[in-house]
Design a binder for these strands. Sequence first.
DNA 1: TGACGTCATAAGCTGGGTTTATGAGCAGTG
DNA 2: CACTGCTCATAAACCCAGCTTATGACGTCA
Lengths: 316, 316
Amino acid sequence: MAGRSGPQGDEPRPHLSHRVPDLGALELLIAVARHGSLGAAAREVGITQPAASSRIRSMERQLGVALVDRSPRGSRLTDAGALVTDWARRIVEAAEAFDAGAQALRGRRDSRLRVAASMTIAEYLMPGWLIALRAERPGTAVSLQAGNSAAVAQRLLAGDADVGFVEGLAVPDGLDGVVVAHDRLALVAAPSHPWARRPGLLDPAELAATPLILRERGSGTRQVLDAALAGHGGLAEPLLELASTTAVKAAAVSGAGPAVLSELAISEELASRRLVAIPVEGVLLRRDLRAVWPAGHRPTGPARDLLSLTRAHPTG
Amino acid sequence: MAGRSGPQGDEPRPHLSHRVPDLGALELLIAVARHGSLGAAAREVGITQPAASSRIRSMERQLGVALVDRSPRGSRLTDAGALVTDWARRIVEAAEAFDAGAQALRGRRDSRLRVAASMTIAEYLMPGWLIALRAERPGTAVSLQAGNSAAVAQRLLAGDADVGFVEGLAVPDGLDGVVVAHDRLALVAAPSHPWARRPGLLDPAELAATPLILRERGSGTRQVLDAALAGHGGLAEPLLELASTTAVKAAAVSGAGPAVLSELAISEELASRRLVAIPVEGVLLRRDLRAVWPAGHRPTGPARDLLSLTRAHPTG
DNA sequence: TGACGTCATAAGCTGGGTTTATGAGCAGTG
DNA sequence: CACTGCTCATAAACCCAGCTTATGACGTCA
């Protein structure tokens, strides 16, 4: 050690977009992995072989790692290439979810299937459902409207939506519904936080008294939390107020403090222990997520297809 | 109903990269969300205000949705814009994981912290850990080598790695270690699969006799599965053999058949019910994930920092 | 040895995104 | 009321990344 001759220069850290290949390149890499040939991969993504060659090469230069072993009878991924490809796949997956959602947003008035959903559902569940729906019924044009429960109900009753998804304790008046999933709020913190190694259950009063990382006032998550802790002294002033669930998550992961988040948002962080859940005594932070429709008008056609994607058990 | 006048033309479906804005645009959008101003966002990402204006505008054209409400005293996201921004954040998150991993791969010989990890860990856990480590110790240069348990042990003993991560039942000879997480294999299928609504536990013999979607022979996941089902007639011929965990996952989600996957890979799909877990009677598909180091040489410095990110409980 | 596959190289073109320079709209202030 | 300061939009010139076409080199197989 010792030999550090300085802070290693100014360490040029250009923006993420300059250090991560663009989507086209990532798709190309994945295609190479699948086909074992640059030319075949090029054909799949609709470019010529030299373009593919050059693109892969520049990606290797950018990352500073050899990704593929070229040989006169094809190209296979190197070990590092396999790893990079797996990470690339996750970017592409997120891009597909983005695309599915965006495509639904675009189809405004005239679409076949109009879905109204609460924010949490629209944000975390719809993209996956839409990808699945697209796989099953490729032609379906979907439009997605996000709003609170009242707005969803209103749209359904006005005939402006074919099916809705809401979170909450009860089905709004005039609607029928079925529970399709659950949204449990979890208190989480980075593993380095003292609460993470605390034995036993946390006292709700202590939770209420502790400043948390939260979304801004008015978010559904915050309302539920407010209600649940009303009997324990009410919520303390937030440690940080952030504009999106993902921002809250990032702050919590980085150790800024404890946060309360939907389990839908943090499943991966929990699995990988970037966040740990802290059990709280007796506070029930669970909401049902329901598909809803105008009373008596069970969804048919595409709406029914969408519904069947979301629930494994009969309506009951 | 009725009025379908045709299959809606040939529906030009250009590649994903043409339908999803590039990373720079997504980062810009997120910056706009944070600052409430195009100009400020532009400054943050290092471009000029007109460039930002044009970029947001072209993104809106591409998506066919208004993303920001412009006013003479700033720009706020529209409802659709908020939704799109959340989806964008998930792409950026995946890109950050990619970057963290890639940066670790790049730092070959001379890096400060050399990590050797099994594939599952390198793929699913390391990127998150590296992001966290970077947040805590910004200067640390990390290199990541992926291989099986034997390769990890060899690198540690040869002094080519400072800390290792392996999956398996025991700590390799010559190493000390501590369990940092668990990798449970789960049998999963799309909610539409018959097994998904099956009551009770699945008979292991039936599982063994059923063709599954699997990774190619030789993968760690497949070895564990093979061993677990050896006493029940052995694994049937696979329904599909795919080259990556993500590909297996995608096939399972799309309803191609049941698959066996690490819970690390499917936590989000389980939470959103795009996949459901099917309990199997008495088959224990759980592996410990351990941090390991040469016996007697507890990690120090950056390696220790990394370790402390991964475990919430004392070494014991 | 010739045909077919692989990937690499070279030259020229195109377009998206950038910059600088400028203008227009609204708010707050004296 | 007009001045100052913020906002965003528009226009014109520029630059470079990535594309295509054309070609070449290398290895394998019949």
